[in-house]
Nucleic acid binder design. Structure first.
Lengths: 191, 191
DNA sequence: GTGGACCTAGACAGATCTGTCTGCTAGCGT
DNA sequence: ACGCTAGCAGACAGATCTGTCTAGGTCCAC
C-alpha cells in the first residue's frame, strides 16, 4: 500500500530523513526545518507533499508498520512451517531489533507517548498493535491453542515489553527472556 | 525522600500541576507558561524552585517513581505473606492503573521516548526499571525460583508490556492476560 | 519598624517552530 | 516553441517556548 504512485525522489528523501530523525529524536524533537535541511529539499516542495507535519508523521508510521511487520513475518517464516514454532520464531525479530544500534524502542509506542489519546497518531498506533495481535491470534489458532486470543494477547505483552525494555539497558537479556517465556507459554497452550 | 525540606506550598503546587500535565500531554507538550498559569505561581517563583525545566522533569519522575513503586508494593503485600503469591499480586497494581481514566501508559517509558539516550531523564528511567527488576528478583529468590533473575526479567516484560498495551485499547484484557501469564510462569518456576 | 524570605505580576529577549509566499530553474511531452 | 510539472532557494509572518529581569506585596522574627 501507499506505493501506487510513481514515488518521486523528493518525497522519498523526505520520508527517509523523517524516518531516521523521528525515530532517533522523537517527533516533537525534530522540526520541519531540520528535515528540510537534511533531506536537501525546498520548503515549498516539502509542503506540497505533506501539507502539515502530521501528514508526514502518519506516513512515517506507515513506513514503520511496513518495516516492522515485515521483520516479524520474516522471522516467523524462518522458523519453518509449524505455526507454533512460528509464534516463537517471531521473537527473533525482537532480538534483531534490539541489537541494532540507535535502537530506541517501539516507534509506535514512542509516537503515541507524544500525542494525545484521540489523535490520528494514537489511532494509527492502536491499529498497528491490533494488526499484530490478530496476526498472532491467527497463528495461535492454526497451532491449535485452546485460547488463541488469550495466547496472542500474552505474546503481544512479551513483545511490547521486550521492545520497551530493550531500549533501556544495553544488556541483551530482555529479548532472550521474552523468547524463552514465549516458548514456554506456547508449548503449554498447544499440547 | 526529597521531603526533608519544609515543603512550601508553591513548590508543591508546581509539582502537582506538572505531574498531571506532563503525564497527560507529554513533557514537550507542556510549556513552562502553562504550568505557571495552572499552578497559580509567579514565573520568578517557578525558576527559583526549578532552575530549568529539566529539573522539574526529574522531580516529576521522582514523584512518579514514589507513587508507582508504592502501588506495586501495596498490591504485592495485599496478596499475603507468600512471596510467590506476591509476585502475582503485584500485577493487580497494573490492573488498577489501567482502569483509571486518563491512563496513558508508563510515565517513565513515555518520558524516555521524548528524550535522547544519554540524557538525565533517560538515565532516571533506566534506574527506575532496574529498581523494579531487582525488587522482583528479590521476591523470586525468596519464593525459591531456580532462576530468580530470569523470572524477574520475564515478569518485568509482562509488566511493561501491560503498561504499554493498557494505554492503547480500552479493553481490560491486557492486565488480565498479564496476570494470568505471570501466575503460570511463577508456578512453573517455583515448583 | 526593619530586614529578609517568600511570593505575585508581567515585560522582555532570543530562539525556534509551523506554515505561506515569491521567484527562479530544469526537464519533458506535444 | 510552449506550457506543465517538479523542484530549489529563501524571506517572511505569527505563534510559542525557555529563561531573565524589574517592581512590588505580605508576613514574621528580632
Amino acid at each position: 500500500m501507499a506505493t501506487s504512485s510513481p514515488a518521486p525522489p523528493a518525497r522519498e528523501r523526505i520520508l527517509a530523513t523523517a524516518f531516521a530523525l523521528f525515530y532517533a529524536h522523537g517527533i516533537r524533537g525534530v522540526g520541519i526545518d531540520r528535515i528540510i535541511a537534511e533531506s536537501g529539499v525546498a520548503k515549498a516542495t516539502f509542503y506540497k507533499h505533506f501539507p502539515a507535519k502530521d501528514d508526514l508523521v502518519l506516513a512515517y508510521l506507515d513506513r514503520v508498520d511496513e518495516v516492522w511487520t515485515g521483520q516479524l513475518h520474516d522471522a516467523a517464516a524462518a522458523a519453518g512451517p509449524d505455526p507454533a514454532a512460528q509464534l516463537v520464531g517471531a521473537f527473533d525479530a525482537l532480538g534483531n531489533a534490539c541489537r541494532r544500534d540507535g535502537y530506541r524502542g517501539c516507534a509506535f509506542i514512542n509516537a503515541a507517548a507524544e500525542n494525545p489519546a484521540g489523535s490520528r497518531v494514537h489511532d494509527r498506533t492502536l491499529a498497528h498493535k491490533e494488526e499484530v495481535l490478530s496476526w498472532l491470534a491467527g497463528l495461535a489458532r492454526q497451532a491449535g491453542a485452546e485460547d488463541p486470543e488469550g495466547l496472542a494477547r500474552t505474546l503481544t505483552l512479551l513483545l511490547d515489553g521486550g521492545l520497551a525494555s530493550g531500549a533501556l539497558d544495553a544488556r541483551p537479556d530482555a529479548p532472550v527472556a521474552a523468547r524463552a517465556a514465549a516458548a514456554a507459554l506456547v508449548s503449554a497452550a498447544v499440547d
